Amino acid sequence: MARVLRPKDREVTAERLLDSSVRNSYQPDLDVDWDAPLVAGKIFLPEERVSLYGTELWERLTPEERIELAKHEIGSITSVGLWTEILLMQLLARYASDLDPRNPHTHYALTEIGDETRHAIMFGKGIARLGLPAYGPPRIVRKLAKLFGAVIDGPAMFASVLVVEETTDRLQRSMLDNDDVQPFIRMINRIHVVEEARHVRYAREELVRGLESLSRPMLELHRLVTAVVAYTIVDIMVNPGVYTAVGLDPRQAREVARDNPHHHETKRWMAEKIVEFLGEVGMIGGPSKRFWRKAHLL
Rank of each mutant, 00 (worst) to 15 (best):
V238A: 05
G54P: 02
L211M: 14
P240W: 02
A70T: 03
S21P: 00
E48W: 12
M175H: 07
T168P: 00
R173S: 11
N103P: 02
D180S: 12
M187P: 00
A40V: 14
W58Y: 08
R209W: 05
A227N: 04
A257W: 03
P104Y: 02
T226R: 05
D180R: 13
G114I: 09
S215H: 11
I77L: 12
R268N: 13
G124W: 01
F291P: 01
D180L: 10
I236F: 03
Y202G: 02
A145R: 02
H199T: 08
A128L: 15
A271D: 01
E265T: 13
P217C: 10
D98I: 10
R142H: 06
N260Q: 05
S51F: 04
F148Q: 11
L207S: 05
T226G: 06
V50P: 00
E220I: 04
Y243G: 03
R190D: 04
Q252A: 11
E68C: 09
A156K: 00
E255C: 07
D98T: 15
E15D: 12
H192Y: 05
E47R: 10
L38E: 13
F184E: 06
P217I: 08
A2L: 14
L91A: 15
K42L: 07
V39T: 15
L219M: 10
E73M: 01
E48D: 15
A156L: 03
P240I: 05
A2N: 14
T78P: 00
V208T: 12
P155K: 07
T266H: 07
G126M: 14
S51A: 15
N103F: 13
L110Q: 12
L130C: 13
V164H: 02
L248Q: 00
P37C: 04
T244D: 13
G285F: 04
R23V: 09
K146T: 13
I43F: 10
T167C: 06
L18H: 08
S20L: 13
S76F: 03
R223M: 07
T168S: 11
F277C: 08
F44H: 10
V229D: 00
N260W: 05
E85R: 06
H262N: 14
M89Q: 15
A156F: 02
L171I: 15
R129C: 09
F184T: 01
A2P: 10
L87M: 15
I67N: 09
G126W: 10
E265C: 03
E220Y: 04
E11S: 11
H263E: 08
V141T: 10
T62P: 03
I191W: 02
K146N: 14
G286T: 06
K267S: 06
M175F: 09
A253G: 05
I188W: 04
I188E: 06
Y135I: 07
L214V: 11
Y53F: 14
V151G: 06
R129W: 05
A253I: 06
A150K: 14
G81L: 03
R209I: 08
T266W: 10
R129M: 12
L57Q: 08
V164A: 13
